[in-house]
Design a protein around this nucleic acid. Sequence first.
DNA 1: CAATCGCATTCCATCTTTCGGAACGGATGT
DNA 2: ACATCCGTTCCGAAAGATGGAATGCGATTG
Lengths: 284, 284
Amino acid sequence: MECDCVKLSAMGKPVNTRPSPQLAAGGGPVEKAMELLEVLAEPGGPHRLAAIARRTGLAKPTVHRHLRTLAEFGFAEPTEDGAYRAGPRLLGLAATALHTTDAVRHAQPYLADLRTRTGQLAYFAVRDGRETVCIALSEAPRGHRTTLYPGARAPLHAAAPGLALLSALPDAELDAFLDSGPHPALTPHTRVERAALAETVGEATESGYAVDEEFEEQDTVGVAAAVHDADGRLRGALALRGLAFTLDPTSVALYGPMVRAAARALSAELGARAGALDLVRGQR
Amino acid sequence: MECDCVKLSAMGKPVNTRPSPQLAAGGGPVEKAMELLEVLAEPGGPHRLAAIARRTGLAKPTVHRHLRTLAEFGFAEPTEDGAYRAGPRLLGLAATALHTTDAVRHAQPYLADLRTRTGQLAYFAVRDGRETVCIALSEAPRGHRTTLYPGARAPLHAAAPGLALLSALPDAELDAFLDSGPHPALTPHTRVERAALAETVGEATESGYAVDEEFEEQDTVGVAAAVHDADGRLRGALALRGLAFTLDPTSVALYGPMVRAAARALSAELGARAGALDLVRGQR
DNA sequence: CAATCGCATTCCATCTTTCGGAACGGATGT
DNA sequence: ACATCCGTTCCGAAAGATGGAATGCGATTG
């Protein structure tokens, strides 16, 4: 979830004789359209216009106009009763994006491998601001019900992938993050204080993999390692997730290095991609 | 106050470039942003600004500004060398959209079932204008290499899912489509003439499933049936796809009814969902 | 080694588009 | 029948979008 505090409205407009002010509403139409898309993709079936208007803080006519535009292009699809759902164009775009993003494509085999070797749910997540988003996962065998689905988000500071990404950050950025705002506790185990968080991240840096000991959800443990490409740019994290009594400390100690190795191999592949491009270019 | 006398500064404004006729310009910024998103999702790794500008027919500064906005929101992600790829927010949105769209969710079990029972690749596609888009698929076993991936598109008139959707259309709409423009031939087998197409669709209407006999790709055969929800609204099509010598006429005759049955069951589920919604809403 | 090309980026004057409050009919539910 | 709530239309005012020209950078070329 995003809060509305993203406005920032760069250039400080001095005197703003604006008769209809307050609620931070808008920047450009593009930003609004993006918010709408995000709402459309959200769970909860088709959304009604008024509901969307409330959720986004936009005026009804504005939402209406944009939805019409989106619908016209197939990004939204109106239902019989005047609600809107994600349209075919958006779904197609979604499918294409997930399939063609190199990180996802290359991660897939590792996910499958990790899953079969550990029996746990394996997934790949990318960073989005102060959270991570799961964008690929390999279901654990036989209804190993964990509450994780594609698109699921978790705070950077309170789950394995986030911690792994933090541990791979330059010191300056890590400090900046640690200093930024309070880090809410999701469970009684969540590390919320700066020192504790820093220590947890530090351990991840040393071992090469991060461990989530019920930080995000009770009885749920995770292991993750960061993935980067040739430029050293962070691309995401490979992670395992399972119930605490299955992913006990012994298993974690066993699987951690496996996840780390997978992340390194994947990183190498992503680095190679640039080379592959050159190859293609040089080839017939 | 300055009189206009000293406006200086090359007043002349030689050619009052009023040309901007309307090449591929288009309309609002939202539409442009959508085009950009689509390009970002496309295969071929990160895209460079100039390339995008060319592909979309937009001016460089325009593309640049929009990409910056998209990047600011995490929908696009700039790479080191000034190119852009799909950003985390877009990927997250994509994952969420695909996972929460009821049609996709409910289709998944049927896809898995169809795949195991037929040994062919099973997929679900939705209509987008004059084409269909594959948005979910169940890989065929052992490297059954078929050229199909999530996001893949096919013309309505030349592939099983499209034909199935056409066969479920009201007569008026079907006629309108058949009359609209030439329907290009993708293989020597493609039905291109109105009469032939109408007949093919007619057969699908009667049997309840459509068959693609190498219309789209040589040596590739498909079987599909339309899926609709409680409102009678078309939601997509379940389909099988395989090599001609595997999906021979006998198999097609055998699998056709299976696909049809799956599509009906899925339709019933989607219908039920709407009913549940109405219940919740206390409607009607 | 210098000239050239292509790219990303910035600037700016013009004006097209957007924005949202208010008002309007049509549903729904009481 | 009344009170809401919703989707939709209208409109003036203002914000943002637009693309040509110009700049600086880097790689490719002669």
